[in-house]
Amino acid sequence: MARFPALQEANRGLLAFVTQTGRFPLGQAAIQHQQDSLFHLSQRAVEKGARLVLWSEGSSLLLKQAEPALLARGQAFSARHRVYLLMALGVVMPGPIWAANGTSVRPFLENKTILITPSGQIANVFYKNHPVPLVEPSRSGDGQIPTLATAYGRLAPSICYDADHMATMQQLGQKRIGLLLLPAGDWQAISPFHSYMAVFRAVENGCSLARQVSGGLSLFVDYRGKVLARHDGYARGDNLTIVSLPVNNVSTLYTRFGDWLAYAAMALLAGFVLQAIRQKRPIKRKPISTLFVLPVA
């Protein structure tokens, strides 16, 4: 942390915002502007024919008391345009951040998604199952990935770092998910590698993937890993991507047997080692002759 003074300063600002929210009217105005921008982009997506709108991870950072108003706005938007909307929120729970014992920081953030149906109803609320250790003081989910059956196929949300956990992602194949909605937030040092890592989860579990990213590479792929659209968050231009994705699940060996290939490779390697040990023969060495020269009397 000492190597990144800008990050330290940002963290100090965030902690002050959490503990003393009333002191930051300009911050509140910036939050409102960000929300307006999200709905403006969502409106443009709908005008271009989108039937599902996906925000990137934590697109809207807001206080807990402001959440009902934003949800009502999202529900009205979905109902008015008859579209699915996946809102990705970073909800801050203000107040003292230190736990009662005074030795740790309490989780003061809800990193979550809220999926709203075309009728304006909330289908599910998903909390990130695997907050990034040491850097993300947020409430973790229950380990489950919720699903929603639609006219297009089965949808499921998850968030960013969750896709690094293969065991959690196996639910995609087990639940026959057709499209994984994976809002994410990266930074330049891990982009685009983190996005390509997530593609493996789609291929393993036979589903399409929509990984909408802030601060990185957004990727939209089918169940074979074929990239159908991409957007570089560091490139100039629009932050809106329109893509048509298949929403169907294909059964895979990984879904049925898990990490069978890795275990098979380990077993094969062990077999080669045992065979080499059994075939090992001792090396016969010729005796070394020693010539003694006796003195002549």
Rank of each mutant, 00 (worst) to 15 (best):
P96M: 05
I288D: 14
A229H: 05
R139C: 10
D142N: 15
F77D: 03
R44E: 02
W98M: 15
N11G: 15
V250D: 06
T21P: 09
D142A: 04
Q28E: 12
H81Q: 06
M197H: 10
L179F: 03
C207M: 06
S78R: 03
G206Y: 06
E57Y: 03
V83I: 11
T290P: 02
G74A: 14
I190R: 08
V293R: 11
G49R: 01
M93K: 15
V227F: 04
L274P: 11
R44F: 01
L180G: 05
I97D: 05
R106F: 07
L70G: 09
V221P: 06
G27Q: 02
W187E: 11
S37G: 07
G143D: 03
P192Q: 09
H33Q: 09
I159L: 04
L172M: 05
Q28A: 12
F77S: 02
V247F: 12
S208N: 03
S37T: 06
P246W: 02
Y152P: 07
I114Y: 01
L26V: 11
H231N: 12
V293F: 11
E9G: 09
G22V: 11
C207S: 04
L14A: 13
V125H: 00
L134D: 11
L291A: 14
Q171Y: 04
R236H: 08
G153T: 10
H33V: 03
G215D: 06
K175N: 10
L291H: 15
P94A: 09
E9K: 14
V213Q: 00
H194F: 08
G27W: 01
I97S: 09
R278A: 13
P5W: 09
A202N: 00
F4E: 13
S37M: 11
L245S: 01
Q75R: 13
R139M: 13
N124D: 13
P107D: 07
A264G: 10
R44N: 04
V46C: 00
N11H: 14
V227K: 08
L89W: 00
L134E: 12
A267Y: 10
E57V: 02
G178W: 04
I283E: 12
H130K: 10
L274V: 15
A123N: 07
E110T: 11
S289F: 12
D259I: 14
A149R: 11
D222S: 08
Q75N: 09
V213P: 00
S140W: 07
P246I: 06
K226A: 14
A267K: 13
T255A: 14
L268R: 09
V46P: 03
L269K: 12
R3A: 15
Y254N: 02
R224H: 13
K128W: 04
K64F: 08
Q32Y: 10
Y161I: 05
S42M: 13
G13V: 05
L63Q: 13
